[in-house]
Amino acid sequence: MLIKEILDHEAEMIALRHDFHAHPELGFEEHRTSSIIAKLLTEWGYQVDRGLGQTGVVATLTQGDGRKRLGIRADMDALPMQELTDLPYASQYPGKMHACGHDGHCAILLSAAKYLAQTRRFSGTLHLIFQPSEESIGGARVMIEEGLFQRFPCDAVFGLHNFPLYPAGQFFTKPGPLMASSDSFTVTLYGKGGHGSAPEHCLDPLPCAATIVLALQTIVSRNVDPQIPAVVTVGSLQAGTTHNIIPDSVVMKINTRSFCPATRQKIEESIRHIVATQAESYHLTAKIEKIFGYPATINHPTETAFALQIARQTVGDEHVGDPEGLTPLMGSEDFAFMLQEVPGCYLLLGTGNDDRENFSVHHPRYQFNDQCLSIGASYWANLVEAYLV
């Protein structure tokens, strides 16, 4: 059930969410957002540490003599895209938008944080992790590399993401793989340009690029077990300037997704093999740059069972999805780095709204559903009170 004290300050937290939404900040630029978060948590009695991962905030509250240590994470960053919602609190910054609902994630955790500081009905140590740059180069990884779990040890860590294509107020998760890994590669093929009328004097990289695009499609169909989901996407192919000039080079941008670490490695090896051999056959030089990589988000069984139990207590059995029937998502999430370090679980909270068309995250007309803010906050509060006993 929802918590009365959280409902009592709901309007305040919705207003805070709207303020975050109007002032979106990109990865590692969340200076205003993190300052507001740090100020509020300090006022509420948390020990606040800043600067981990540049703009990250970790707030700690210890109560009683419990020895358990719990971490809860919310991401803060926005996306580099133009908002098209016409909301009264729409982004005031051109080309920046909270199109993934991280403003909502922050408000949810802050709402729970205020309640927990007021009531303190737990025994142990609570670490609230406000993380930068989930959308770009992995703020979770950076915080971990800078000593997150050494400075703030956790016995378990939990995270949550809104999902506007699921009904409002419903929770979904499952043990094992929940979201896919994501790797991006930039391939550059170097040839010798020239006049389009004299290809014999050139080394044209475009035919090779076309061959590589087609060959990449055989990785999933012929190199990966057909019962293991995987995706290889060529999202960009850039070459040349006009009709009658053979270009010197071609740049291809590739993205891959999988749930299995071995499959992830196999896909990368296949990409590198295809590019190298095809480039050699066309007498070209190839360079492959791996831009970034997120591992698969793999939930731990014990913590996932606990997370589902708290969800049922918060919203009722009928509002919690059957984990056996939940299909893992091909989207990726850098909370996966935290799950590689500490046992935990990542959940999805449905935020669909019956009164309007629901656009997916990363859409310029996406809207976070404020009716779900207190649901998420009550969930976090219930989880803390049940875990730290």
Results as ranks from 00 to 15, higher is better:
Pro164Cys: 09
Thr188Asn: 11
Gly169Cys: 12
Ala180Asp: 07
His161Glu: 07
Leu178Pro: 08
Ser184Pro: 00
Pro175Arg: 10
Gly169His: 10
Lys174His: 10
Pro167Ala: 10
Leu160Ala: 11
Asp155Ile: 01
Phe163Thr: 10
Ser184Ala: 15
Tyr190Gly: 00
Phe185Trp: 02
Val157Ser: 09
Ser181Pro: 00
Phe172Trp: 11
Gln170Met: 15
Leu165Thr: 15
Gly159Phe: 11
Ser184His: 07
Val187His: 12
Pro175Tyr: 03
Leu165Asn: 13
Asp155Gly: 01
His161Pro: 06
Ala180Pro: 00
Ala156Trp: 04
Phe172Cys: 05
Leu189Asp: 01
Lys174Asp: 05
Phe163Ile: 07
Ala156Val: 06
Leu189Lys: 04
Gly176His: 10
Thr188Phe: 08
Phe172Gly: 01
Ser182Arg: 10
Leu160Asn: 11
Pro175Trp: 04
Gly176Glu: 06
Phe158Trp: 09
Tyr190Trp: 04
Thr186Cys: 07
Leu178Asn: 13
Phe158Ser: 02
Thr173Glu: 04
Ala168Thr: 08
Leu160Ser: 13
Asp183Pro: 00
Asn162Tyr: 03
Asp155Val: 02
Leu160Glu: 15
Phe171Glu: 01
Ala180Gln: 08
Phe158Leu: 08
Asp155Tyr: 01
Asp183Phe: 00
Leu165Phe: 06
Pro175Asn: 06
Ala168Val: 02
Pro153Met: 08
